[in-house]
Write a protein that binds this DNA or RNA. Structure first.
Lengths: 284, 284
DNA sequence: TATGACAATTTGTCAGACAAAATAAGAAAC
DNA sequence: GTTTCTTATTTTGTCTGACAAATTGTCATA
């Protein structure tokens, strides 16, 4: 009967913290239940009085959590109709909490693909901008992350993952673009969760270390084009190593098949190949 | 079209005078005050009792709004310390409400530049993906937006702005990428606000109509490379027309000058120019 | 069958109170 | 005079109970 609303048990980022505020524990618990499908879209969840009794919180505290869930697009409340779970398309997929909750459940192929595509778009451009603008301190941060990666490689893959993420975020930080910075921050946890699921992370890292360094070196030398190309290579490799882990659950809810417009039928295809070597292709 | 969805509690379509729920009116009022600087970062705002008296709402209602502000990163509350306005870097710049509030105040050069850069990164890639994958219905939506633009051009610039945005969003929608979709949704209002401030919008549109059509046509013909290039051209023109309106207040808080690393000093520069014609250069 | 008034249910809002936490102030010891 | 411990106070955090508003379901009536 003892309901576990201790979120900290499953939260890896801040283990020692008990849920200080009850409204936050409500938020996390309900958010996770909705995102994992325990409450399905369209479902009406219990009345506030009932929910409060079950979760053992007062109605004001419950309502604060519910209100936050509603601004994150997960639920919608109306008088007399109750509060209903909204459709997935309405969820705020750039909200760190939502992404974190989604990362705890079974990986969603559509989200994974979208995430890899966004990276393939953002990061080469970010590397390019970083090479143009990075200040010495920012370059130092990038290289420090790289060295931390290399140092922790053979034994501590988990730490390597973290420093990998640090490196990518340091690059985005060096662009000086506040929106990109926030975007990187949003996808951080999801990316980390997906990396963890990648089975052969260690060999993958051993292969890609020099690719990481190529990016860092190009940024240090202020060579935008080279940084962009190096990042494309790096991402292509990462996608190649990550994709197999999710090959099984694919074919789920994707609206259209990805190959419905084969590029070979496109007269511009050759020209396309000349311009770039399509990391997003490898992501599918 | 399904333009009904509003992810945030307070939609921009809603007139400023009709906040049904008090907690939303609190949210909007305080949010706007914070973003416009009426409450500066670091400031401690009045106690909940005092604020409730001033805004004429009860403490629970006030607290719901305050809680939402805290998840948006605008404020932070602690017992005995009160609730303080957080630093700008902590604000959730991908939150539609925050961006909307920022768009109401005087335009922030840093945000504008970041926004133009993000567009320059995202949209060419999106056009490319759309050309690869767009379903007939999505192509129709794109072209419909274009025709609406063209129809409302000479007399109704405001409507033209809206349909312009519709066109860009239809393209991003056609990528099938749920994260990109959410991103476009976030920057929608800000972009619209900035467009409105652009003085010579009409002439700008008259010049760029054919550039818009070039993008749509390339997507219809499923020509990715051409769509990408056309979008680059379009954005370069838009940036050129938009930037002058904000030339005056620039030189504000940008950490470094943008040209501190002139590309000519980069040995890779020529190669870079071959690959793309640098729309983000025009954005600066 | 259609229609209107009425009742029931659920969220929205309010008021007041106590608990918890963290700072500020003051007292005691050195 | 300075330091340290204790105490007091302020502010958020939470609870209880109640009423208002809105919307739906029901039932009586034409």
């Amino acid at each position: 009967m003892a309901r576990k609303w201790s979120i900290s048990a499953s939260d890896s980022r801040e283990p020692p913290h008990a849920p200080r505020r009850k409204t936050d524990s409500v938020l996390n618990l309900l958010g996770r239940r909705i995102v994992t499908g325990e409450y399905a879209p369209g479902d009406q969840l219990p009345t506030e009085a009932e929910l409060g009794k079950r979760l053992k919180v007062s109605r004001p505290s419950l309502r604060e959590g519910l209100k936050v869930l509603s601004v994150k697009g997960l639920v919608e409340s109306r008088t007399r109709r109750g509060t209903h779970v909204r459709q997935r398309r309405d969820w705020d997929l750039l909200d760190p909490d939502v992404l974190r909750w989604m990362a705890t459940g079974k990986p969603d192929p559509e989200l994974l693909i979208s995430l890899l595509e966004v990276r393939a778009i953002i990061e080469p451009a970010a590397a390019r901008m970083a090479a143009q603008r990075a200040a010495p301190a920012q370059i130092a941060a990038i290289e420090q992350a790289y060295h931390a990666m290399a140092a922790s490689l053979p034994h501590d893959v988990e730490a390597c993952c973290r420093h990998d993420l640090e490196l990518h975020e340091a690059i985005i930080d060096a662009t000086g673009n506040i929106l990109l910075r926030r975007l990187a921050q949003a996808i951080r946890t999801t990316l980390l969760a997906f990396f963890r699921l990648s089975a052969n992370a260690r060999e993958s890292y051993e292969n890609s270390l020099k690719e990481h360094w190529a990016v860092a070196a190009a940024i240090r030398r202020h060579a935008p084009a080279e940084a962009e190309r190096a990042m494309r290579l790096l991402l292509a490799g990462t996608a190649r190593d990550t994709a197999p882990a999710f090959a099984a659950p694919v074919g789920h809810k994707r609206r259209r098949t990805r190959a419905s417009q084969p590029e070979k039928s496109d007269p511009q295809a050759k020209q396309t190949r000349e311009e770039r070597n399509d990391p997003e292709k490898a992501a599918t």
